[in-house]
Design a protein around this nucleic acid. Sequence first.
DNA 1: ACCCAGGGTCATA
DNA 2: TATGACCATGGG
Length: 218
Amino acid sequence: MRFTRGRLARLYAALHRLHGPRHWWPADKPFEMMVGAVLVQNTRWHNATRAIAALKQANCLTPTKVAGSSLPTLAKLIRSSGTHRVKAKRLKALSRWLLERGGVARAGRLPTDELRRSLLAVHGVGPETADCILLYVFGRPMFVADAYARRFFSRYGFDPVPDGYEPLRQAVESVFVAEAPVFNEFHALIVWHSKELCLAKPLCERCGLRLSCAYGSR
DNA sequence: ACCCAGGGTCATA
DNA sequence: TATGACCATGGG
């Protein structure tokens, strides 16, 4: 089953009807979101949020403080997020990038494609992290083609789910055209549905898409 | 005592 | 360009 505008629109509508708006990304400030996007790499949110809390506790959750901290100091603070020595370098690189660009508001003047290229050039920022930042910090309409999205589509019978991050993102974005708030909700709903309620309320029984949903059989 | 998570980089061939 | 090793904690 291929991606079409109709199928994705109905999936989105069904998810939204089932779970309601999630208004989701657990951070209250832009820099905190950016930090979270790095800390969550290949890690559970639980562990990433602990690290963010530690940074906050140490009064270190600003670009200036992160850029100015030593690697060992930073690494110690974010230890709970796993691969902490790696991530310490990445946080510093991202902070430097933000400072060089003169902050979020200033950086946000760039057009989306340029902003994306700029983010991808930062050490430790790959396509998924870049898209999370673009979507949740800069409000650009990006589909986050992460592991949840891949599993989700796969289990709902899309075949083939394009291999690799970019191909999946483009497959979705080329047919599902929407504003940033919709992509924001879409991502949030996929994650929420996948981890919280997929077993209790299989979407395929409610959305009328006749998808061969494999949720619940794991 | 395993297994892996909302990735990304780097070294090889 | 395409794989694979590596990073490393906390929860199941």
